[in-house]
C-alpha cells in the first residue's frame, strides 16, 4: 500500500512537473526551429530542409552584428557594473546606518522609478543627456539605465544585506574595523550571490531595453541589438521571419549564458525573500 502510494506520488510529481515545463517551453518552441528553416512559417515544425543560410545573411549585416557583439555588450556590462556596485553600497547603508524613514524611502523610490522609466519621462531624460553633452554616446545610455534601475536594484539588494547576521559586524567593530573595511571584508563576500542576482537582473533589463538607446543614440554604429533587430523588417514594418528569428536567437544566447553561468557558480535565488 505504501509502495503504491509512493509510486503514485512520484508519477503525479512528474506529470505536474511536465505540465509546468510545457507551459513555459511551448511558446518558445517555434523560436528554436524557425531560424533553421528556409521558408517563413509561424508553425512549429522541424525545418525541412535544415539550413544555416539565415545566419549567414544575418552575419552579412555588419550593422546588426556590431550592435549585438559590441554595443549591447558595452551598454549592458557597463550598466551592470555600475548598478551592482552602487546598489550594494546603498543597500548596505540603508540596512546598517540609522537613516530615518529608510523603508519609506526604498518604496518611494521604486514607485518613482516606475513612472520615470516609462515613456512619459523620455523627453526630460533626452534634454538632460543633451545638456550633459552625452547624446549619441554609450555613456549617456549607461547613465540613464543606471538611474532608472537603481531603486529596484537597491530594493532587491537590501533583502540580501538584511539577512546577514549583524553579529558578524558587531564583533568586527569591537575588533576595531573601519566601516569600509567591514563592508569590504564581511558584507561583500556574503552578499556576492545577491550581487550576482542584481547583476543578471540589470544586464537583462539593459539587454532588452529599446526606448532608452533609441532616444539617446543616433549613429548606426552605436545602436544596440534591441534597436538593430528592426533592420530585419520590411518597408511595411513587419519582420522578415527567417532573419529576425535567426537574429533573435543569437540575441537571446548571451542572457541565457549569463544566467546559466551565475546559477551554476553562485545559485540564482533571493535570500530572505524580500520582506516588507
Amino acid at each position: 500500500m505504501r509502495v503504491v502510494k509512493h509510486v503514485l506520488g512520484r508519477v503525479a510529481f512528474y506529470v505536474v512537473a511536465a505540465v509546468f515545463a510545457a507551459v513555459f517551453a511551448l511558446p518558445l518552441l517555434w523560436l528554436v526551429f524557425a531560424p533553421f528553416g528556409s521558408r517563413a512559417t509561424l508553425s512549429v515544425a522541424l525545418p525541412d530542409p535544415f539550413t544555416l543560410s539565415n545566419f549567414g545573411r544575418v552575419f552579412a549585416n555588419t550593422f546588426a552584428v556590431r550592435a549585438l557583439f559590441q554595443n549591447s555588450i558595452i551598454q549592458a556590462v557597463g550598466t551592470m557594473i555600475l548598478v551592482t556596485l552602487l546598489a550594494t553600497l546603498a543597500a548596505y547603508a540603508l540596512s546598517r546606518a540609522p537613516i530615518r524613514g529608510r523603508d519609506v524611502l526604498s518604496y518611494g523610490l521604486v514607485l518613482f522609478s516606475s513612472i520615470v522609466t516609462g515613456t512619459a519621462a523620455m523627453v526630460p531624460i533626452f534634454l538632460l543627456i543633451f545638456n550633459l553633452g552625452l547624446i549619441d554616446t554609450h555613456m549617456g545610455v549607461i547613465l540613464v539605465f543606471t538611474g532608472g534601475l537603481l531603486p529596484a536594484a537597491i530594493f532587491i539588494m537590501r533583502d540580501f544585506v538584511d539577512s546577514i547576521p549583524r553579529s558578524y559586524e558587531e564583533s568586527a567593530l569591537v575588533a576595531g574595523a573601519s566601516p569600509w573595511g567591514m563592508f569590504r571584508d564581511i558584507a561583500l563576500p556574503i552578499v556576492r550571490p545577491g550581487m550576482m542576482v542584481v547583476g543578471v537582473w540589470t544586464f537583462v533589463n539593459v539587454w532588452g531595453g529599446f526606448l532608452v538607446p533609441f532616444i539617446l543614440l543616433r549613429s548606426p554604429t552605436k545602436m544596440p541589438a534591441a534597436v538593430a533587430i528592426y533592420s530585419f523588417y520590411t518597408e511595411g514594418g513587419t519582420p522578415i521571419i527567417t532573419l529576425t528569428t535567426a537574429y533573435a536567437l543569437l540575441y537571446t544566447l548571451p542572457v541565457l549564458a549569463l544566467y546559466l553561468f551565475v546559477n551554476w557558480k553562485y545559485g540564482f535565488r533571493f535570500f530572505g525573500g524580500i520582506k516588507s
Binding site: F20, A21, F24, A25, P27, L28, L31, V200, V204, W207, G208, F210, A225, A226, I229, A248, Y251, T252, V255, L256, Y259, F268
Partner: peptide, 12 residues
Amino acid sequence: LAIVAWIIPDVV
C-alpha cells in the same frame, strides 16, 4: 524554463 521566459528580451 520559467526564468528563461523572464529574462529573454521583450522583442524576442
